[in-house]
Amino acid sequence: MAGDGTVQLIDEKGKRLDGRNFDELRPISIKIGVLENADGSAEIRMGNNIIIAAVYGPRELHPKHRALPDRALIQCFYRMSTFSVNDRKSPAPSRREKEISMIISNALTSVVFTEKYPRTTIDVYLQVLQADGGTRCASLTAASVALADAGIPMRGLIASVAGGLINDKVVLDLYDIEDQKGSGDVPLGYCPVLDEISLVQLDGVFTLEQFEECLKLSIKGATEIYDIQKKALQDKYAAIRADVSVDAKETKKEVKPKEEPKAEIKEESQAVKEEPKEAIKVAPKPEIKAKPKEEPKTEVKEEPQAVKEEPKEAVKVAPKPEIKAKPKEEPKAEVKEEPQPEIKDEKEAK
């Protein structure tokens, strides 16, 4: 965090520079199914952030040796468009982009039933069209609904938002200037229905009390975001709902779950099969307690564990690079580094 806490970001009445209260989210809208070619997609606008998420898969993984024998790999590609920030970003992927891609894919892995699709990859592309602070959180929120839109089985959706510290006060959902001039932020990925934290990082200096307050605030924020995610999905699917139960009723009598379809092209044998208990195979170990909120621990798989260790490391290696005002690079130099076609060739060719 660049901020030294000297910039006045919140007034005596608790109003922030953009008029929000300390515990208020930026306006959020989520659109589902925005890209035709993708298996699942979503566009999120959170304040001035605009991010598109696309999911392809599960599909074959190349090179094959990277495939996991017992589950799907979730590969995330978080990318900032060159024009998404004030100073043009170089088109080549940065270390920051790679790290964010990794922590998002770790978080998503914790909620996806990856064991349903061994040896495959589920690719999640996140393209930031405009960045306004908190893009990793908005990306995770969008990725999560895009996965659901792709029909991929999940334990629940992850909603994500950062809490932070401005002028020694804990606030929710930092935007651009607060991110730059504030004194710390804690991005959080949280699944309300499971009460699980699948992404958390910290930047800046917090007292234990401040951290705890921050966590509480972000969980409240994530729960609000979750409702928006849920509504976006329901609205999209309410429009195209298909009452398959009609078929199930019609075919109930002649179809037995174990019936083997015949070699010949008989449509009858192709009718819906109910697959009672099939789900049990893929379900994580049943829990003992009744309420979902009380025992996230008993059924935590390996992945979430890994995610939880992540932040410690990440804090060291990832000082929020992007939004800080970087010294202006000489654009000319950047042109040369680009792996893209550039004017230079054009000139030389002449």
Partner: peptide, 29 residues
């Protein structure tokens, strides 16, 4: 997206600006 930045001209065209175009066929598409 169009970004404008100040920079040095090419030596052979010292008094004209520069346009540079790049495309990404992102796997998102």
């Amino acid at each position: 997206g169009v970004k404008a930045q100040l920079g040095s001209p090419f030596p052979d065209t010292p008094d004209t600006g520069v346009i540079t175009t790049s495309a990404e066929l992102s796997p998102i598409a």
